[in-house]
Design a protein around this nucleic acid. Structure first.
Length: 310
DNA sequence: CTCCAGGGATGAT
DNA sequence: ATCATCCATGGA
């Protein structure tokens, strides 16, 4: 559910799990009940990410990695556990959501969904490409950028591609980027890649900034407005109060929280969201988004992904 | 075919 | 501050 909730766009369903990349590492992940299994590029099952996906504490599965002699690559399980934010206290977070019918439905529907810790540049670049695009289109763009400009990796017989660095994309041209289906977004992605490459903007150095200052810095990048900035803050800077408002969320807010009210401006929606959904508003927003998208008007559950979650 | 999508930049009220 | 337009692309 997490991988299909519109946070990341490059994971591909393979067998019972997913293939993708975390940074430069090719990874296979597969959820087995309460356990998240991982494989690395060698294709060998190395470890199981220790965690509690759900409330009930699983029996400690000690000795799951019998092959102690084979030196495991630097803690795959930890990389995976961090990426999937298995340390987030889901129980606390969900309890902090407001108790209204809409939020209750979303909370129940999205049980187990987590906000992923994404690499900053990858997240920023992908969401610059996301404007006025459907999730399936964003997946296509991500795939095209990775295949053309990323580095090929292999995992369990499947090939995956890492996301191209800022300097790699800065070396391309607007025309080359347009071939990836970017349209008018190509210029924005190219210009932002150049700004990052030149050192004029340094994403990592922005981590200590306050939410307000970080948002301001992000919005100065070409192709980054309030919505994209909030997505990057939420998905890559661990600012779980950030509340991105896209067309789906705006629809939910207007139809469910501002029923039959006219002259509701975007600023009013943003102010309401910041005050109403609380310190973990970003989590609430993601739950509302995924719930609306999966159960909304658009009949999408027909041929793809019948049910890969219970 | 038409409709619309995890918007942003610009210019006019 | 708020609103109107335009910007490309392709799945549904």
């Amino acid at each position: 559910m997490t991988l299909n909730s519109g946070q990341v766009f490059h994971w591909e369903k393979v067998g019972a799990g997913f293939c993708g990349t975390i940074g430069e590492s090719a990874v296979y992940v597969e959820q087995l009940g309460n356990v998240l299994q991982t494989k690395m590029e060698g294709g060998v099952v190395r470890r199981r990410a220790q965690h509690q996906l759900f409330r009930k504490a699983p029996r400690p599965t000690t000795g799951a990695t019998a092959g102690s002699r084979e030196l495991a690559p630097p803690s795959v399980a930890r990389v995976v556990a961090r990426y999937f934010a298995l340390d987030h206290p889901l129980e606390e977070i969900c309890s902090s959501f407001p108790r209204d019918p809409i939020m209750n439905a979303a909370r129940g529907f999205c049980r187990g969904l987590r906000i992923i810790r994404q690499p900053k540049w990858e997240c920023l670049a992908t969401f610059i490409c996301s404007s006025m695009k459907q999730v399936t289109h964003i997946r296509q763009i991500s795939r095209a950028l990775r295949q053309r400009f990323g580095e090929k990796k292999e995992i369990g017989g499947d090939e995956v591609f890492s996301f191209p660095s800022p300097s790699r994309l800065a070396q391309t041209s607007e025309n080359e980027l347009r071939k990836c289906g970017l349209g008018y977004r190509a210029k924005n992605l190219l210009e932002t890649a150049k700004v990052i490459t030149s050192g004029q903007a340094d994403l990592d150095s922005w981590s200590p900034l306050s939410d307000r200052k970080l948002r301001k810095q992000l919005c100065e990048l070409p192709g980054v407005g309030m919505k994209v900035a909030n997505c990057v803050m939420l998905f890559a800077f661990e600012r779980i109060a950030a509340f991105p408002i896209d067309v789906w969320i705006e629809r939910v807010l207007r139809e469910k929280y501002f029923v039959r009210k006219r002259k509701v401006t975007g600023q009013m929606l943003a102010d309401f969201a910041a005050n109403y959904f609380g310190a973990h508003g970003g989590y609430a927003q993601q739950y509302l988004f995924h719930h609306a998208r999966m159960t909304g008007k658009r009949k999408s559950q027909r041929s793809h992904s019948i049910d890969q979650f219970h």
